[in-house]
């Protein structure tokens, strides 16, 4: 299978995102872990495929003839989504969250403004596990931790409880990770793109 990607013909088998990344083109994909199935939640990998805006992570390359990552529309919409995402960080200067690390550099590359929207997010901290802690103020609800816990490890200690803006990452129905069925495998920590779940301590 081949498709025209940003004007060049490329061979592609999996998703459009696979093709884009294989071609060395930078494209945000906050909720797509390299090793986990697509979630399609963060909507930052939007591209134009045959005139439609699609999420590259879940759009099969075989269904596209022509894909452009840098059209004006695609860039504008990606930027808008990133701006909504950036407003999910409560603590400026935190080591995690969308304002730090990879997400921040992605956002700045895409020209997203950090202050278009007023900040909104919870501020709960769960430090009951000696292995990792959870900082809601850095969470963008991308769902990678949930996929790691439910679909990779099949533990199912983490879920996205509630809906709409009330959605929260929670250790199931438990109040804390310590009280939950969590086995502390840390796959969620590895999957988290914003260090909302982050390892504690380290070597003594």
């Amino acid at each position: 299978m081949s498709l025209i990607l940003n004007g060049d013909e490329v061979e592609a088998g999996g998703s459009v995102l696979d093709a884009v990344l294989a071609a060395g083109i930078e494209l945000p994909h906050l909720c797509k872990d390299d090793n986990l199935p697509a979630i399609g939640a963060c909507r930052t990998c939007l591209v134009e495929a045959d005139g439609r805006i699609v999420a590259a992570c879940s759009f099969p390359a075989s269904m596209a003839k022509r894909v452009d990552t840098e059209t004006k529309t695609a860039r504008r919409i990606r930027r808008g989504v990133l701006e909504l995402t950036l407003a999910m960080q409560a603590e400026r200067g935190d080591e995690g969250g969308p304002l730090a690390g990879e997400t921040a550099s992605t956002a700045s590359r895409e020209g997203a403004a950090v202050d278009r929207f007023a900040v909104r997010t919870g501020r709960a901290v769960d430090a009951t596990s000696p292995f990792f802690s959870f900082h809601e103020a850095a969470c963008i609800l991308c769902g990678r931790c949930v996929v790691a816990c439910q679909d990779l490890q099949h533990i199912s200690a983490i879920g996205l409880a509630g809906r709409g803006r009330d959605t929260r990452v929670t250790p199931g129905a438990a109040d804390t990770f310590r009280e939950s069925i969590c086995t502390s495998c840390g796959s969620c920590v590895a999957a988290c793109p914003t260090s909302a779940l982050r390892p504690r301590g380290g070597a003594e």
Binding site: G40, R43, L84, T85, M88, L141, G164, R165, D166, T167
Partner: peptide
């Protein structure tokens, strides 16, 4: 619509309340 958003994707969950 904002209230009925399931909360899975960012533009709907974050955008509609805005």
């Amino acid at each position: 619509n904002a209230r009925e958003s399931c909360g899975k994707c960012t533009p709907c969950r974050e955008g509609l309340p805005r």
